[in-house]
Design a protein around this nucleic acid. Sequence first.
DNA 1: TTGACATACCTAATCTGTCAAGGTATATTT
DNA 2: AAATATACCTTGACAGATTAGGTATGTCAA
Lengths: 106, 106
Amino acid sequence: MNLTGDLLRGHTDMIIMAVLRRNDSYGYAINKTIQEFSDHAFSLTEATLYTSFKRLEARGYITSYWQESESGKKRKYYALTDKGSEALKEQEKAWEDAKNIIDGLR
Amino acid sequence: MNLTGDLLRGHTDMIIMAVLRRNDSYGYAINKTIQEFSDHAFSLTEATLYTSFKRLEARGYITSYWQESESGKKRKYYALTDKGSEALKEQEKAWEDAKNIIDGLR
DNA sequence: TTGACATACCTAATCTGTCAAGGTATATTT
DNA sequence: AAATATACCTTGACAGATTAGGTATGTCAA
């Protein structure tokens, strides 16, 4: 498997929000989750990840808060907002459409 | 359905090559084919289309030749090369992976 | 205890593909 | 004669992803 991020471009936000729908999480852990679910075939670059956080927060789709771990490290947690939840649903619909179009053409 | 090309970004080349796998075709007709197969929900802009042709030809994935239609209009036909056929297979594999990753995360 | 690695955050500059907005020209339909 | 469909193409701007940096703390093995 060799997946460039460009293949999922435009869907990064959806992926992140889908992870946050399960529960609040922080950058490092979110990326780990994505890696695990793709059998370590795919990971977002950190730049992509943090750029996406900024974008999502600016749009009001997620909020953030700092929390300290047991080990003492500071983590920035993100939570999906109601608005984000709505946006996620729409993006998932668009994703289904995209799948149908591409698969229909083959 | 409201699909921006950005949602399919990175897959445009695959889509075009998939159309060309059926038979040689020219720009205008290729776009019509894509529109029909997506129930007119999706079409590439012409700029995207011709940019993609250039890119694909530069990579040796397609070749082109001019041919006149019965009506007298000149059409630039494109044909999938062996190299393009190989690339298409790989891209389709990557597409399957992308689908699995995204759908697995939801 | 020191060095390597994992954890955890972030930014600036660059690259790439798409889009908006233009352009040319011929054939067909009204 | 005008409108529409067919048919090609380019330039400049934009948005999202990548490359390549940066800071700092915790953990574990040698």
